[in-house]
């Protein structure tokens, strides 16, 4: 469908993600491993979802597919109504650029670039001009509370600050979904709380968030917990809304 690109950047109305019978089969030699085995899932706008499961349960594979880093072996994945399974690599790159924000466990900041340049990175690939990049990156850094750390390089930042820079980077293109893979995995409990508070605030501001975690108290920040085992969803429970948490700063 050649018109798919034109939908990019259009805010999703209601259903952000719809997975229909997604499977992912890895071929290792002659054996084939079903990492995902018939996943049906629907995530609406402004949902706050945690995906839990043991290692090998397929949660990372699911994240990769949701993030358009990987393609499903079969099934359909609609992101904001567009069928990603039929897209070319270049189109998927554009989807990742515009629609998806990634937050990784180990931050993945580029060491030689300062915070501002790191946050600008996705804008380079979306063809923004120099001035607009600067402005947007400053804005995003201010949003995560790092307005005074703009010129710092990653090795001058604490773990929590690094993750905030990474979150600012993920948010810069105003993505439809924020995908966080163990966002607090490399942080101490105090910093973890700060980061989770930031996620909570982003959610309150209307951001759709999906995160993978194996820590229950982190997952408890979310409003919906999906548990996985052997490539299947074994439970999908809505959490009772917790009392409004205090937003830091």
């Amino acid at each position: 469908m050649p018109t798919q690109d034109s939908h990019l950047g259009v805010p999703c109305d209601d259903v952000v993600i719809r997975l229909e019978g997604i499977t992912r089969i890895y071929k290792v030699g002659v054996e084939s491993i079903r990492a995902l085995d018939g996943i049906d899932l629907e995530i609406r706008k402004n949902e706050y979802v945690a995906i839990m499961g043991q290692s090998g349960s397929g949660k990372s594979t699911l994240m990769n597919i949701l993030g358009c880093l990987d393609r499903a072996s079969s099934g359909r994945y609609l992101l904001c109504g567009q069928d990603t399974t039929k897209m070319s690599d270049a189109q998927l790159a554009r989807i990742r650029n515009k629609q998806i924000g990634f937050v990784f466990q180990s931050f993945e900041l580029l060491g030689q670039l300062n915070a501002l340049k790191n946050v600008e990175l996705p804008l380079i690939y979306s063809g923004n001009g120099w001035l607009s990049r600067r402005a947007l990156a400053r804005e995003a850094l201010a949003r995560v509370g790092l307005a005074d750390r703009v010129r710092h390089k990653p090795n001058q930042l604490s773990g929590g600050e690094k993750q905030r820079v990474a979150i600012a980077r993920a948010l810069i293109n105003k993505p439809s979904i924020l995908l966080a893979d163990e966002p607090t995995g490399n942080l101490d409990s105090h910093t973890s709380e700060e980061i989770m508070a930031l996620f909570d605030r982003l959610h309150q501001e209307g951001q759709t968030i999906i995160m993978v975690t194996h820590e229950t108290d982190i997952a408890n920040h979310s409003h919906r917990i999906i548990r996985m085992l052997d490539g299947r969803i074994i439970s999908d429970t809505a959490m009772p809304r917790p009392a409004n948490k205090e937003v830091p700063r």
């Binding site: 690599d89 270049a90 790159a93 554009r94 990742r96 515009k98 993945e108 996705p122 690939y125």
Partner: peptide
């Protein structure tokens, strides 16, 4: 390699 992975994740096409 990790940098390349990250760049691709944030939307770099192969050509880039």
């Amino acid at each position: 390699t990790r940098e390349i992975g990250l760049r691709k994740a944030v939307g770099a096409r192969r050509v880039a």
